[in-house]
Design a protein around this nucleic acid. Structure first.
Length: 399
RNA sequence: GUGGGUAUGGCGCAGUUGGCUAGCGCGCCAGAUUGUGGCUCUGGAGGCCGAGGGUUCGAGUCCCUCUAUCCACC
């Protein structure tokens, strides 16, 4: 129990007015809660809609997002730094004003991008040297740079700059990497405190989430969780999962790690995942999610329904006049048929992608609302079982 | 009418001096994709090589006839 005190201490008391996290009800480890921010209250569990370059891909507008129940948008430090540049956005009054979105925005730190798409990178204690994927120019990003950029963007929640090691990295590498990520978190914290103290900072109530790493080694995960929770943050994320390991491994790591993160702070599982992944992770105590699936798969014609995932490119939908999903309240299902949307996709018409992305985000956002409702009435276990069985049955039937 | 070119999967093409189960791109049919480049990747189906005849151990490749089509000229 003594070991738990560090985690509990990190969670004690809001550092400032904003960032207050209030648990409304629990069911097992699952939490129904809310987080106060300067851009409004986030009801959790929540799925953040991914708009990497300050835009949800697929010609989705702010009005669309309001219509489909989006609470939080996620944007990306690395991408916005490369284009149009965080200084540009700062001069235009910050990301919220720039993209005309006054609700919460979480910015990913760029850590993941440095490792997933930049080439010729070199990792050092001070940060990472790499080449831009746009024009190849050399860029340096470390904890201070990442936080400075995120401060210029003025996002609601900034993420710590971390390293996301490859899924095939060996134990020793992961250990060293995780230790460095923990040291980087302390520097992120210090830099954000400094910037939030300045008069001309765009969002002085910007929150910071730390990130837990350790790949699939549970002892490294736990040790790392202890270290990062000594540094006070407004929430803690589990990073580096869903990068190649099995679902069982991922669920196991979540289960073993969550208890070492402060329970009176939000827990964010980065980059995950499928509807089933989310249902399982909520049960294990996670309350923030983000994933490219609904948007990327939408653009590729893969649609989420209560009867599982369907691929609209399949020939079986050529003459199908039904909506993507009967009874769905999304803008696509309100008036268009599978056959028509399939045609749009095959003709590479933007409208096809747009309708599919709207449907998928609506599906995710609606599922999160159902999850919150179920948690409030203490019926989450039954809800989860019903939802999973429905999706599995539908996919079995189509095979 | 004369001369020349071209005929190979749905479309566009490769196929060496004739040599084993004829390839490629697009399209089609499926599948991947987890802190996003709208990309990419992986499988699969589909061809009596225009028709007929000939030379040869062997013809998509060479010869003859026919048919279709394109170009130039009259």
């Amino acid at each position: 129990m003594a070991e738990r005190s560090a985690a509990d201490k990190a969670g004690q008391g809001g550092r400032r007015g904003k960032g207050m996290y209030k648990i409304i009800r629990t069911e097992g480890r699952a939490k129904r809660a809310q987080l106060e921010t300067v851009h409004g209250t986030i009801q959790t569990p929540v799925f953040m809609n991914v708009g990497t370059v300050a835009a949800i891909k697929g010609a989705v507008s702010t009005e669309d997002l309001e219509r489909i129940g989006t609470q939080v948008q996620l944007s990306n430090t690395y991408h916005l730094h490369v284009r149009p540049g965080d200084q540009v956005i700062r001069q235009l009054g910050g990301l919220h004003r720039f993209m005309s979105w006054d609700r919460p925005i979480l910015t990913d730190s760029g850590g993941f991008q440095v490792f997933s798409l930049a080439s010729l990178r070199k990792i050092k204690e001070e940060g990472v040297f790499f080449h831009s994927h746009i024009d190849g120019r050399k860029i340096f990003m470390g904890p201070e740079e990442s936080i400075r950029i995120q401060s210029n963007l003025g996002s609601t929640i900034a993420m710590a700059f971390d390293e996301c090691p490859s899924s095939v990295a060996d134990r020793r590498y992961v250990e060293n990497s995780a230790a460095r990520t923990a040291r980087w978190l302390a520097r992120c914290r210090a830099e954000l405190d400094r910037l939030n103290g300045l008069e001309d900072t765009i969002n002085r109530g910007q929150l910071l989430f730390g990130i837990n790493q350790g790949a699939v080694y549970e002892d490294i995960r736990i040790e790392h969780a202890k270290r990062i929770t000594e540094i006070p943050c407004d929430g803690y994320a589990i990073g580096g999962l869903a990068v190649g390991e099995s679902h069982e491994q991922m669920y196991h790591i979540i289960e073993e790690t969550v208890p070492w993160l402060p329970q009176d702070k939000p827990t964010y599982l980065m980059g995950v995942g499928t509807p089933a992944n989310i249902l399982e992770a909520v049960e294990r105590g996670v309350d923030f999610f983000d994933c490219v699936y609904p948007t990327r798969n939408g653009r590729h014609g893969h649609l989420y329904t209560n009867q599982g995932k369907i691929n609209l490119f399949n020939a079986r939908y050529e003459l199908d006049e039904r909506p993507i999903e009967e009874g769905c309240g999304c803008p696509a299902c309100a008036r268009y048929s599978r056959a028509y949307i399939r045609h749009l996709l095959k003709a590479k018409e933007m409208l096809g992608m747009r309708l599919c992305v709207l449907h998928n985000l609506y599906f995710y956002n609606t599922m999160m609302r159902e999850i919150r409702d179920a948690l409030e009435t203490g019926t989450y276990a039954a809800y989860k079982k019903r939802k999973l069985e429905g999706m599995q049955a539908g996919e079995r039937e189509r095979r």
